[in-house]
């Protein structure tokens, strides 16, 4: 059951990921990216990582992409014109792609951890609690640093976007 779901969502994600690159209309590209994010979140769900999955939707699909879409609409971008096929470029990039995939396969398949069976999750495993505990105990310091970094970024944006800045 979960294997079928995995293939469905993985396929969906890759299909719409391709769509992001191939669509000529920028709004279509953005929407494809949203569907791709939802597919990724669904993959997390099938792995019982509900928290990460839902944060994926909440942050990327729900907030970041809305802003993207917003900007695209405000800029009134036209659909990109179709270009002539450049044989050299396609061949070159194809070669690079094949090489890269081959390299990745070798590295990934050579990793012994991949072949070990994963331990089963206990029924009452609470991933929200686990993530919260990890963030606020072991990784408390980096977590606070990230918080300060974001605060500085926010203040910086507010200062930069003020009109009366000379």
């Amino acid at each position: 059951m979960s294997l079928i779901l995995f293939w469905i969502f993985a396929g969906l994600m890759l299909l719409f990921g391709l769509g992001v690159v191939l669509m000529r209309n920028p709004v279509s590209s953005a929407m494809c990216l949203v569907v791709s994010f939802v597919g990724l979140a669904s993959l997390f769900f099938t792995l019982d990582a509900f928290f990460i999955g839902i944060i994926q939707i909440l942050v990327y699909a729900g907030a970041v992409m809305v802003l993207f879409l917003f900007i695209i609409m405000l800029l009134d971008l036209k659909a990109a014109p179709a270009r002539k096929l450049n044989v050299m470029a396609w061949t070159g990039s194809g070669l690079v792609l094949v090489g890269f995939v081959a390299l990745m396969m070798q590295v990934v398949l050579g990793n012994p951890a991949l072949h070990a069976a994963m331990p089963a999750l206990t029924a009452d495993y609470d991933d929200v609690q686990q993530i919260g505990l990890a963030l606020f105990t072991n990784f408390n310091f980096p977590f606070q640093i990230v918080g300060v970094l974001l605060l500085v970024a926010t203040v910086g944006v507010v200062v930069l976007s003020r009109k009366e800045l000379k």
């Binding site: 929407m31 949203v34 928290f51 839902i54 944060i55 939707i57 909440l58 699909a61 729900g62 907030a63 809305v66 879409l69």
Partner: peptide, 12 residues
């Protein structure tokens, strides 16, 4: 979080 995530998709 599910509630927030899904209702934030309502913007689209």
């Amino acid at each position: 979080l599910w509630v927030f995530a899904v209702s934030s998709l309502g913007v689209y």
